[in-house]
Write a protein that binds this DNA or RNA. Structure first.
Lengths: 155, 155
DNA sequence: TTTACTGCAAATATTTTGCAATATC
DNA sequence: GATATTGCAAAATATTTGCAGTAAA
């Protein structure tokens, strides 16, 4: 398992190679955005990054953030989500094998989980025909807590 | 397996009960929207419904469509998706067990698939702690076609 | 008759785009 | 020095909201 600092270096290297391969420029804004994203534990939207960088007294325009998240999506360092809210949510994706989400339809809480059986089933399915890069699973249901409340106060 | 006509009747009944339980009105617009949605095979956005109803010479405002898709989401007759595009995609969800999507990251095509092993693995995981209502799986990778093109024209 | 619902238009929110200024290579 | 990239502001797009008119109950 890689340490957090090492992950920062690794993704920086991946992004650098991606940019060089395409003759794109290695601007400080790009790496500031990447580093900030990789400092965030969970999900975020564009405005979050914008404000977090502002708090560091580092101003990057929203347009630039949008532009660069596009690049990071393309080189698989970031993934997009939709949980049902209004803003588009993103998440760092390097070295974070967890892409299973359980969403409670009663209280709306979201919880990540791992499961090797699910992982294996998905990989088995796709080895035959296609190459699988990643996957995201959203499971909707009622969580423990809400289940208990239901049984305590039935209709 | 239910026939298509019967599905229309069933979802109409479910929606009717949902509305009656909440003392909401059974307007023709609501059922026109529901019926149109259940006539669509794959995914759609709000504008698609709007235009399809227009083609039938049935005018319903976008605001009303948004409003009612909200209700249909709430009573689980419709689900929301995000494939990476700009508009929110929806899909009918009653009696359509297929919620597995394979998305090719090269050409962008999306293909649905079924897999009982995956289904079972997901159900096993969640029977222990929570009640699972539904799930959606997005698998990202390279499809057959794009894989062949890659091997024909290597870098 | 009551009031929930619809349609319209305006408001909001989000993302994209055009262009001049800037900074990487 | 050439030009990709940034920042700003305007534009485009998607969704929500307020309110008057309409119609379901």
């Amino acid at each position: 398992m890689e340490s957090s600092g090492s992950t920062q270096n690794t993704v920086k290297k991946i992004f650098t190679e991606y940019l060089e391969k395409r003759s794109m420029r290695k601007t400080p804004e790009r790496f500031a955005i990447l580093e900030k994203i990789y400092s965030i534990k969970g999900h975020f939207d564009v405005d979050t990054i914008y404000n977090m960088l502002l708090e560091d007294n580092y101003h990057v325009s929203r347009a630039t953030i949008y532009n660069n998240i596009g690049l990071l999506l393309d080189c698989k360092l970031v993934i997009r989500h939709q949980f049902g809210g209004n803003t588009t949510q993103y998440e760092k994706s390097y070295n974070s094998g967890i892409h299973n989400h359980f969403i409670c339809t009663k209280c709306g809480t979201m919880k990540e989980f791992t499961d090797t059986n699910i992982k294996r089933a998905i990989q088995n399915k796709h080895l035959k025909d296609s190459t699988i890069e990643s996957y995201t699973l959203y499971v909707y249901g009622t969580c423990d807590k809400c289940k208990q409340q239901e049984s305590n106060a039935p209709k």
